[in-house]
């Protein structure tokens, strides 16, 4: 269970890594230069998260292959691709949850606000407080609904009126009406879809800068799904959202940018959602989106 000691290996390629080294920026061609000026492709938003040549191995199997992309601030970025292509792995790179997997090895640079999160002096715990995460499978704590939502507030020692924050978070996650009267009951007694919304409420309660969502709507009915989609659009006004989804229409509806991963852990295309869905550069992406393969 070696956890925090991943740092050394992982950050070594970034030695002296000045986030704005021109050489490297040139290589990440499609959106080069976004981090220096505000002239990015996503409607003039600055880059918040930038991956440069990120490679991930699980033991000897490579799960991500040289991923470079730039996630704009206050926008929704969607990750799509067939099962097993490394979308969850990429999300876990951003908040360094891969540190917790013994077999995982991360190489490359990943910048959050121009700071390489794989630098030696980055505390992964502090990083995760700024980058919230909703997991692929709902995983509420065996605590009351209230305590689940307040968990982040308590461990991060946040100031404020917890009752009010809990209520607001549950409302935003479209769960409040259903659990208003049973805040003291266990979060595990909710249905799968309710649990997923509880996890969303839990993730947004401590007010993170970036929200990583791994298929947040996969267990939800259409009504709850559309509520969550509304929530995501609303969140994007204040937060940066990165969402993994298998639902093409959903990606097209809610995201500003889309990254298409294909089998083998490759990032095949990354760009404005409209372009990806209407006129992708790559034939493979077009095939995937139109359902010819994947």
């Amino acid at each position: 269970m070696t956890r925090e000691n991943m740092t050394d290996e992982a950050s070594s390629p970034a030695d002296g890594g000045d986030p704005t080294t021109d050489e490297m920026l040139v290589e990440t061609s499609p959106t080069a230069g976004v981090s220096e000026s505000d002239s990015g492709t996503a409607g003039g938003s600055r880059t918040l998260v930038e991956a440069r040549n990120v490679n991930v191995w699980y033991d000897d199997d490579q799960a991500l292959n040289d991923i470079s992309l730039e996630i704009p601030e206050n926008r929704v970025t969607a990750m799509i691709g067939p099962s097993g292509c490394g979308k969850s792995t990429f999300l876990r790179c951003i908040n360094r949850m891969n540190d917790l997997i013994d077999a995982a090895r991360v190489e490359g640079d990943l910048f959050l606000r121009n700071k390489n999160v794989y630098d030696d002096d980055v505390d992964p715990v502090a990083l995760r407080r700024r980058v919230g995460m909703v997991f692929q499978k709902p995983n509420p704590f065996p605590k009351s609904i209230y305590d689940n939502v307040a968990y982040g507030l308590e461990i991060q020692d946040k100031e404020g009126d917890y009752d009010e924050i809990v209520e607001r978070s549950l409302k935003r996650a479209a769960l409040w009406d259903e659990v208003e009267d049973q805040l003291d009951e266990s979060g595990l007694e909710l249905s799968g879809g309710q649990q997923q919304r509880l996890c969303i409420a839990r993730a947004i309660a401590p007010d993170p800068e970036v929200l990583l969502m791994d298929e947040p709507a996969s267990a939800l009915d259409p009504v709850a799904t559309s509520k969550i989609e509304d929530l995501i659009s609303e969140l994007a006004e204040e937060y940066t959202v990165v969402i993994v989804t298998h639902n093409m229409q959903q990606a097209a509806r809610i995201s500003d940018k889309t990254a298409v991963f294909l089998t083998g852990g490759e990032l095949v295309e990354f760009g404005d959602t409209q372009k990806i869905f209407e006129n992708p550069d790559s034939q493979r992406v077009e095939d995937y989106i139109t359902g010819k393969f994947g």
Binding site: L100, R128, G152, I155
Partner: peptide
């Protein structure tokens, strides 16, 4: 998954 949830919250 519960440990993951906790670490993911920045615990």
């Amino acid at each position: 998954s519960m440990r993951q949830a906790s670490y993911g919250m920045g615990a």
